[in-house]
């Protein structure tokens, strides 16, 4: 399995071989630096730590700077781990650089990103509730959630709302994984991945691109 860190550039359209216009997202991915390798002996599991995007060393604490120095690099802004299978052989070394060519054999990828924050949202927007009619006597509760509990909720008496009851609250700005995006194009020169469809987050947001697990 291959993984890479990237930055969403934005969306556009391209023509495929059949002459159809395909909506695509462009991701500026890599080159990522391997900042650390983890093994079963030392850490209890196999993994590779990747870093993306330069950050001024003065803006990071000393432990982070020294950690990067071990891999002969500067501290990175976006650092994530690629988990390897328990028996897998460690094929990377600290200081190695990973580019989009790691996906050269892949046709589909999963993308992990942070969705756009929507602030405090009501139930209609957040959970797709139906709301109430605009007229026919409805007063002051057009977008209300309706009843959330009763005296006899969950049997017994004096019940409160059930745990997990969908209500208004903060929406967005959470980690979202979108799976099985077709890899339309790989530009090794410009470090670009062109992926079919949309991915979570705003343009300029960080994302993780992995080989699709269930293609």
């Amino acid at each position: 399995m291959a993984m890479l860190l990237g930055k969403k550039v934005g969306m556009t359209q391209v023509y495929n071989e059949a002459g159809e216009l395909v909506p695509v997202t462009v991701i500026l991915a890599g080159p990522c630096v391997v900042t650390q390798t983890k093994t079963v002996e030392t850490d209890g599991y196999n993994a590779v730590q990747l870093g993306l995007d330069e950050v001024k060393p003065v803006r990071r604490k000393k432990p982070a700077i020294k950690h990067a120095e071990k891999a002969n690099t500067t501290p990175k802004r976006f650092v994530r781990e690629m988990r390897l299978a328990a028996g897998a052989e460690q094929q990377y070394q600290a200081g190695d650089s990973l580019t989009v060519s790691v996906f050269s054999e892949d046709k589909f990828v999963d993308v992990v990103g942070t969705s756009k924050g929507k602030g405090f949202a009501g139930v209609m927007k957040r959970h797709g509730f139906g709301g109430f009619p605009a007229s026919h006597g409805t007063e002051r509760k057009h977008r209300a959630p309706g009843s959330i509990a009763s005296f006899a909720s969950n049997r017994g008496h004096g019940g409160g709302p059930k745990r997990g009851k969908r209500m208004a609250g903060h929406m967005g700005n959470v980690r979202v994984t979108v799976k099985n995006h077709e890899l339309v194009n790989i530009d090794e020169e410009k470090n670009l991945l062109v992926v079919k469809g949309s991915i979570p987050g705003a343009a300029g947001g960080y994302c993780i691109i992995r080989t699709a697990q269930k293609a």
């Binding site: 550039v9 934005g10 556009t12 359209q13 391209v14 462009v26 530009d187 410009k190 670009l192 343009a203």
Partner: peptide, 13 residues
């Protein structure tokens, strides 16, 4: 920067 990259991707089509 953003437009340049997107234009480069588009330009192939």
């Amino acid at each position: 920067m953003k437009t340049e990259i997107l234009d480069a991707v588009e330009s192939k089509s």
